[in-house]
């Protein structure tokens, strides 16, 4: 049985697709057969970050609607050969993702893959609901600022109440917190929430902290999952996160400075 993991956040622009690309690449690099599925129908960009946009023939919606088989639509990654990408459709509506259709595709993928990473669109609408519906685990990507934390909290609530596990009364999906764009200096200056604050508010175990870094931007622009930038701190932080996802104990890094008290000031103002 495959582990189905959704990468989600509620808020847009926090690093879901970057995270999906790196986590799936990291899992595949360790020999696990992994597929990363882009649920962001209409705004696809996972294929850009994975540098396979020129090889997209069929997409997720084609498979759901029976216009193509899964093997036709899956794109094999050129760098890691146990990694596959199922791109989203750029021309369809999100409603094209029917519950039955998504289930059929996920079930078919489960037969051959060890890990299915679902890259969720932003928001709490249909696309995001479909991405998390079948998930066994969720990686909640959060930036260290209040609105992102609030949206993450919202999506965690939806995960607990609207996923298949919730509807069937099974154990809830396992939750992981990934704090991205973390800048310890700005935390020290009181411009950002600290990891401790975010963890305390969300009450979800911490999977990792990805430091804010120019390397992330550059890698995205080059179509390279940042985890493959092995000498960069962001790349290493993602590698740590993958290791922890697989049950390894690794000490948290890249969060050297911590500060309390910012949060209370923030709320009194509001």
């Amino acid at each position: 049985m495959a582990r189905i993991i959704v990468v989600t956040s509620g808020k847009g622009g926090v690093g879901k697709t970057t995270t999906s690309a790196s986590i799936s690449t990291g899992l595949a690099k360790r020999g696990h057969k992994t597929v990363v599925v882009d649920f962001d129908v209409g705004l696809r960009n996972l294929d850009l970050i994975m540098n396979c946009e020129r090889r997209v023939v069929y997409d997720f919606v084609n498979v759901i609607q029976g216009e193509a088989s899964l093997t036709q639509a899956l794109i094999r990654d050129k760098r890691v050969d146990t990694l596959y990408i199922l791109p989203a459709s750029q021309t369809r509506e999100k409603e094209a993702l029917t519950k039955e259709g998504v289930e059929r595709v996920i079930n078919e993928l489960s037969e051959t893959f060890d890990y299915i990473i679902c890259d969720s669109p932003a928001g709490i609408e249909h696309g995001a609901l479909m991405a998390l519906y079948y998930a066994d685990e969720a990686i909640v990507v959060t930036n260290p600022e209040v609105s992102s934390v609030r949206d993450s909290d919202r999506i965690l609530g939806i995960l607990q109440s609207k996923s298949r596990r919730a509807e069937m009364g099974q154990d809830p999906a396992r939750e992981h917190l990934l704090v991205t764009r973390y800048n310890p200096e700005r935390v020290e200056r009181g411009e950002m929430l600290s990891v401790a604050d975010v963890e305390e508010i969300l009450a979800v175990p911490l999977l990792g902290v990805i430091p804010e870094s120019q390397v992330v931007l550059n890698a995205s622009n080059q179509g390279l999952p940042v985890i493959l930038e092995e000498n960069s701190d962001a790349g290493q932080a993602y590698d740590d996160a993958v290791a922890r996802l697989l049950g390894e104990e690794r000490e948290q890094r890249f969060m050297t400075v911590q500060k309390k008290g910012f949060f209370s000031r923030m709320f009194k103002g509001g």
Binding site: I124, D153, R154, G157, Q160, S161, I201, A203
Partner: peptide, 27 residues
């Protein structure tokens, strides 16, 4: 025993309500 998250509503129409976790902003 689970956190009550933003956007969620928990209702005890008859008796007491006991929550062993945070009640988040927006809940």
């Amino acid at each position: 025993s689970q956190p009550v998250r933003s956007g969620q509503q928990v209702h005890a129409p008859e008796g007491d309500l006991i929550i062993l976790a945070p009640v988040q902003a927006g809940a």
